[in-house]
Amino acid sequence: MSVQGPWGARDGSTPPPVRTPERETPRYSARHDTPREDKGQHPVWAVVSTLLMAGFLWFLTGSWVVAGAVLFGLFVHEYGHVLAMNRVGMGPARIYIIPFLGGLAKGQRAPKSEWHGVLVSLAGPAFGLLAMIPFVAVGVTMKSPEWLMGAFFIAMINLLNLLPAPPLDGSKALGPVLTRVHPRLEQVALLAVGGLAVWWGLSTGRLILAVFLGLAVIGHLKRGVWRAAWGQLSWPEAGRSLALYLLTAVVCAAAAIGALLPLTGGAVEPAFEMGLRFFGVGGR
């Protein structure tokens, strides 16, 4: 019989290995296996962000009516994205207000297809035009240029968002159409348009917009070809996407000119010239 010591038996034999109970693999509940739901922006920060955004818009426009119109238009625009996201199974979507930049609609998951992505991106500008209605109504009733300019700026928010420059809605609506032709065509085209948008922002004094778009263009360049994992639009879907994009752009432009018509006595050409001056084109 051997006597057990601290490093083995004293007679030189090796003691049998001591069996230890196997550690049970931790079990996780189903809630740990699924992504946590985005609860949205904290209410306190949402209020602070909205107030900061309102003050910034007043500083830029010098009018509380126009600033309120832009802020209201921003919410309605993002809510259009939210409705579309919920409709195609990306919800429940949330709205975030980003001070000095704008808003963001965020879904719980990516769209199931490129076609759904196009619908979501165009829903914001299309639905956002509804925000013009109360401002046009008050402007026409009270013959108030300030309220009509508020409606004009709402239309311009949605029209500018259709620029095919990342990360604006236009890049997400037109980009997949270009990818259908060739993936590199999307990258080259959006980079070119993004560069022009940055130049426009700098040349017209919209420095914050220029910096924001410039950072997005750099991010696009680093990211490479977009949406490789999502597949591509079919050719019929690409045709419908292009048609919807062009139709939305035309409606937004027409709404902007329409908001200015009461200020020009119904004359289209002066209203059109006023709209061009917003882009820094034409005389002052």
Score class of each variant (00 low, 15 high):
T141F: 11
P43R: 07
S121M: 02
A254F: 08
L261P: 07
P35K: 03
G195H: 13
N158F: 14
L246G: 05
G282M: 08
F56P: 03
L207R: 10
P236K: 12
R94D: 01
L185H: 14
V140F: 11
G266R: 03
G201T: 10
G107Y: 00
E186A: 08
E37P: 04
L191C: 04
N158K: 08
P26Y: 02
V225I: 09
S171L: 04
V70P: 00
L242E: 14
S171N: 14
A249E: 10
H77F: 05
G195C: 05
P262N: 07
A249R: 12
R284T: 12
G103E: 10
G194L: 12
G175P: 03
L261V: 15
G275Y: 02
V44A: 05
S13Q: 13
P21I: 11
H220A: 15
L71M: 09
I154A: 01
W226N: 07
F279N: 15
S113F: 05
P270L: 15
A137E: 08
L83Q: 06
A9R: 03
R19E: 15
L215C: 06
G194Y: 10
C252P: 04
P145T: 14
V217I: 09
L60S: 14
P6A: 05
F59N: 09
A69D: 02
R227Y: 06
V136F: 03
L246E: 02
L244Q: 14
L57Q: 00
I98L: 09
S49H: 13
L101D: 12
R94F: 10
K172L: 11
Y79I: 12
A253D: 11
L148R: 04
L163V: 11
F75I: 02
V217H: 05
R180G: 01
A54Y: 07
M53T: 07
G195D: 07
G91Q: 10
A165N: 04
W64K: 06
G201C: 11
R284F: 04
G89E: 07
I133L: 13
P134M: 11
T141I: 15
G231K: 05
L261H: 12
N86K: 03
A131K: 00
A137Q: 06
L185A: 08
L129N: 03
Q108N: 05
G266A: 05
P167G: 06
M132F: 08
I208T: 14
N158C: 04
A126G: 04
A123H: 02
A105Q: 11
V44N: 13
L148Q: 03
L263I: 10
V177A: 04
L101R: 15
G5A: 14
Y79Q: 08
W235H: 02
G117R: 07
P183C: 12
F56G: 06
R31F: 11
V76A: 15
T20I: 09
L233H: 10
A155E: 06
N158S: 12
L130E: 01
L263P: 15
Q108E: 13
A267D: 09
